[in-house]
């Protein structure tokens, strides 16, 4: 993922989880971010869909185990 996309994704994460110093890593999981529960997960997905103008399937939404999976999926959709 290029720097511009990474920055955009980081901003989405910071806004959804209300953590202005949050830094994204590929191995970051829901357990590492306070407030990343199943309800906020869907909220995060919606914000990402709007920011990148893409759409995830239900199965993709359920399959993201870490930020790296999310990045790979976004890259694939924007390729």
């Amino acid at each position: 993922m290029d720097a511009e996309r990474t920055q955009r994704l980081t901003e989405v994460f910071r806004a959804v989880f209300n953590q202005h110093d949050l830094e994204l890593r590929e191995d970051l999981t829901a357990a590492d971010v306070a407030g990343w529960d199943s309800m906020n997960h869907v909220n995060l997905i919606i914000q990402i869909e709007q920011a990148f103008e893409i759409r995830f399937s239900n199965e993709e939404v359920n399959s993201f185990a870490k930020v790296g999976d999310l990045i790979a999926c976004i890259d694939q959709k924007l390729a």
Partner: peptide, 14 residues
């Protein structure tokens, strides 16, 4: 849970 919430939130645009 996820399909229902996704559908409703897409309709209301978050």
């Amino acid at each position: 849970f996820t399909p229902l919430q996704l559908t409703l939130m897409r309709r209301t645009r978050g």
